[in-house]
Design a protein around this nucleic acid. Structure first.
Lengths: 203, 203, 203, 203
DNA sequence: CATGAATGAGCATTCATTCAT
DNA sequence: GATGAATGAATGCTCATTCAT
């Protein structure tokens, strides 16, 4: 009774986005052709255009999927009780994916880097949004911790994560990511508690 | 006086590498065609192949040029007396180029990201070398400062620089780079001056 | 009252022909896709094939619709009492539609021109019929006027109309059509009223 | 000594324009693919783009070639001594090409009709110029003949020619073109001479 | 009958690479 | 060595037509 129906369309669209995302993650945006994606997802080339009018539109959908995933991920981190724990959990995500990251880089970072070369397009705007909302999330938690300059701290944290991913990838070495993750978590632990630090803390 | 011979060849080669590097920096590796490069450098398209058998070979030369430039840059930093000053001067380079970086990203970072998608090629090996030697340089200075875990500190520093460049570019905001540069310099300043180790201490 | 049955089918078919005709008039035959027509008429793309097995068949129906409209138009002109008045009324039709004609050309002329490039098909035969019957109508009236060479006069008139439409369209100037229409009506007026032949004269 | 050189480039470009023009004349603009043109002219498909960046640019060149040919043709007609003779010679051109015209239509007319559906493009502007300059030429000669309203007379003549070509093509009947050509020449002959007609001629 | 989805041949265009001179 | 031209395999995209339900 609850069976099939006709969820194929949504299925296929999602399958396309997912397959394209994976392929682009591994091969890069510009090196991945729609024919590649068609083969990977078993969707006939011409049919892709039923779901996405252009390659750019598919890329937009991928960026949107990244945004959704990241929102879900951040939401999942809210289970932790304290902002400090949440921030450390974010670092834990990087650490937990260090094998994939050392092989293919950061999903968001590598895509954004290519997107950012497409000046003035929707894609490059999407890239901007992707980065910004991660920073926003971190900022909120640093603020909740009562840190001064929570924005700058957030940028420091996200930049550290992205930079670590970049180097871990370039060096093809997951242990680099692991060790930096530990350092970052320790750094978070070092941050003083709340209001007292407002005037005069060194961070 | 004895010169003449054919300094043109070397000239042209250098012009090609330089023009290609600049163009690829602004447009991305995969989006830049040999025809673009020919036009930019005023070298006839067909003639490029006299100097580089393939596009990949040109890219290798660009990576080599980056390595040279970076060596020269690091060598220039040695004018500073102390390792601390040298490390801060490196950060100063990022800060000083923040306008270009916020517009086009980090020269090495954006190129490496594209190169790293070309698994197993010479290019991706070159990218690895590029990152590694920067870290090596920083490591050496942290060691000279007598820091424990100088390798990890070096990775932390370079990752911070690269991550900052990535975010500054994605957000198109040079001020982000400026503020993070200041934080990084302050961080270097706060590192203890482990003088004991400098002159042979054991710890 | 007894109706209902399924007037929708006929409706839809007519809607398709009408919408397609309009769209093709504005955009040209080869530049108009079945998807365009589906969107314009609110008929699902797949459903078009229930009414027309191929695009060519739809085009045939459009040609047939043009033929019907033209027959109705010519029939309407018969209200005028004299052949002279009827011929002038035909010119009046061109004059009265000069705004649309200067924007999109003559409906029959522009379609025929594209149809005629499809040698040997039914379509090009339809185009031929379309032109011929207009000429036939004019010929009949010139004959009733007792003109010698009524066939040639008819061709002259229709050619003048079509040519005027073509130039008015190319120049995007309705006033050209208006002035030529006046000239043509004046020309019809100057034709001698060869009354003798009307009632059986020999000449 | 005077032999080869390297006129290939110009040759090939001209060959492309000529072949494309012929093919488009026979098959229509939208139905003719660059692959067709490549095959017809024995120019490899990819190589066409060395000479024309887009299909539209090739079309522009075809329009320009038409303009040149038409200028040369009109210039050739100037050999005739009187404007009357020149105008009749223009009609003679139509008459002389009636076989091709009845088979494929008027070169300029059929192309313009398709071009005019491409609103707002360079192409449709080219079409406009093509028509206008023919009319200008005729106007000049009617004026030299001392006719009143030379502009309208010019439009009448060119419209008659174009309309005749359209009908001759639709009916696939060269004799129609021949008879109309005769009528047109007779009409030119009928026009009164010079200034006396200025006030009161009926035309 | 209706319809969203599928299909695949075809199209304009690009571009690294090669060729002829 | 230098260079304009040539080449052909791809690439993104279109569209008439068909299929499955």
């Amino acid at each position: 009774m609850v069976v099939s129906g006709k969820p194929q369309a949504a299925d296929k669209r999602a399958r396309l986005v997912e397959g394209a995302r994976e392929l682009i993650y591994r091969q890069g945006l510009e090196r991945t052709t729609l024919a590649d994606i068609a083969a990977e997802t078993n969707v006939p080339l011409g049919n892709i255009y039923y779901y996405f009018k252009t390659k750019d539109e598919l890329v937009d959908a991928i960026v949107a999927a990244h945004a959704e995933d990241r929102d879900a991920l951040l939401a999942g981190l809210e289970r932790r009780k304290t902002p400090r724990a949440r921030l450390k959990a974010l670092i834990g995500v990087l650490d937990g994916t260090r094998d994939a990251v050392s092989r293919y880089g950061c999903q968001i970072g590598t895509l954004s880097t290519e997107l950012d070369k497409r000046c003035g397009t929707d894609a490059s705007a999407g890239s901007q949004r992707l980065s910004r909302s991660l920073i926003d999330w971190a900022e909120r938690h640093f603020r909740e911790m009562g840190q001064p300059d929570p924005r700058d701290l957030a940028v420091t944290l996200i930049a550290a994560c992205e930079g670590t991913a970049r180097l871990g990838h370039s060096l093809r070495d997951p242990s680099v990511i692991h060790r930096q993750s530990q350092r970052l978590r320790r750094w978070i632990d070092t941050l003083p508690d709340a209001a007292t630090t407002e005037h005069g803390g060194l961070a």
